[in-house]
Computed example of a mutant assay.
Amino acid sequence: MKVKDFYFDLPKELIAQHPMEKRDESRLMVVNKTNKEIEHKHFKNIIEYLNPGDCLVLNDTRVLPARLLGVKEGTGGKMEFLLLKRIDINHWETLVKPGKKAKIGTTFIFGNGELKADVISVSEGGSRIVKFDFDGIFEEILDKLGEMPLPPYITEKLQDKERYQTVFSREVGSAAAPTAGLHFTEDLLEQIKDKGVKIAFVTLHVGLGTFRPVKAEIVEEHEMHSEHYMLNKETARVINEAKLNGGRIIAVGTTSNRTLESIADEDGKVCEKSGWTDIFIYPGYKFKIVDALITNFHLPESTLIMLVSAFADRNLVMSAYETAVKEKYRFFSFGDAMFLY
């Protein structure tokens, strides 16, 4: 299968640069996999397509304000740090820009000196291991000094950090938001519960690999990045009960989908589990547990559109994307949503 099979022409003006004023006022394309019908709604209408006994599975990861802007001690040269992975209480793996200025032994200062970073080593991929020096609680300092690591296709500054967080985010650790969840409000979630739909939370910390382009020409040759996930005992119970009683398992976003499909056994049951997954879902994959999917509109030739094309027929998905362009849906992280069932 060729990567170019997942290409579509996307006008730049359809890439959403900011979130909607109201989360659930974004548009919703509803795609029926069986009869291939497409409906155009607003996200708050999602409740019309959910049935009592269904289980909505949300990713409760919370995005780190992981972009730090600092200066080199002594020279004042500007440097951008992006936190990738925490090694221990003081040490982090980071991406730096411009990299040539971040030599081993150099020190960088952030804010008014509340935070300092010493470059300890350079990894094989070019990232830096740095040791942070600070007084107090690192997360509080980061919340004050850090910025949201918005995707490269968003060029406008985000005015409210919380708009790049879901209203149910709680487990800090992501480099990017699980964007399908951004459309939910607390009120909408309450309405969904009142209808008799079960709500379950998994955690998958989204890595920056989600933004890396697929460089291989053949889909099967792409090497998928790894991301950390967690699913607790109570969540497993809720999901398994819903499945046993005939309810649908509805994944909110590709991250929830990947988590569920990584954990589920061949009978579609899940258990308490945590670990790393590099599952790569593309057409031909047989889904074990997910019955319906809520997702945003993704980049051409991305692993995300491949996953969606695995869940529904590729031709149907590509046709739906052509319709989305024609109808001027908003694309990517702050864009509109699609419900496939």
Score class of each variant (00 low, 15 high):
residue 199 I to Y: 08
residue 290 V to D: 11
residue 7 Y to T: 06
residue 184 F to A: 01
residue 185 T to A: 05
residue 124 E to V: 15
residue 253 G to V: 09
residue 185 T to Y: 07
residue 266 E to M: 08
residue 256 S to Q: 09
residue 199 I to V: 05
residue 158 L to K: 01
residue 132 F to C: 05
residue 248 R to Q: 13
residue 220 E to C: 01
residue 94 T to K: 07
residue 191 Q to D: 15
residue 321 Y to L: 11
residue 101 K to M: 05
residue 304 L to T: 04
residue 48 E to N: 15
residue 41 K to R: 15
residue 278 D to M: 04
residue 282 Y to K: 01
residue 331 F to G: 13
residue 34 T to N: 15
residue 204 L to A: 11
residue 34 T to Q: 14
residue 144 K to F: 02
residue 108 F to K: 07
residue 28 L to Q: 14
residue 75 T to S: 15
residue 128 R to W: 08
residue 282 Y to P: 04
residue 191 Q to T: 02
residue 218 I to M: 02
residue 100 K to M: 08
residue 193 K to R: 15
residue 232 N to F: 08
residue 46 I to F: 14
residue 85 K to Y: 11
residue 42 H to I: 11
residue 221 E to L: 05
residue 269 K to I: 02
residue 20 M to L: 03
residue 238 V to S: 03
residue 56 L to W: 12
residue 203 T to A: 04
residue 324 A to L: 08
residue 317 V to A: 09
residue 254 T to S: 12
residue 76 G to V: 10
residue 297 F to Q: 03
residue 171 E to R: 13
residue 138 F to P: 02
residue 46 I to Q: 13
residue 46 I to S: 14
residue 153 Y to W: 00
residue 276 W to H: 11
residue 189 L to V: 00
residue 134 F to P: 07
residue 54 D to G: 15
residue 154 I to F: 01
residue 31 V to T: 12
residue 124 E to S: 14
residue 179 T to A: 02
residue 264 A to K: 12
residue 239 I to N: 13
residue 307 L to P: 02
residue 168 F to H: 01
residue 5 D to H: 10
residue 162 E to T: 04
residue 92 W to A: 10
residue 124 E to C: 03
residue 12 K to F: 04
residue 32 N to W: 03
residue 16 A to I: 05
residue 47 I to Q: 15
residue 24 D to L: 02
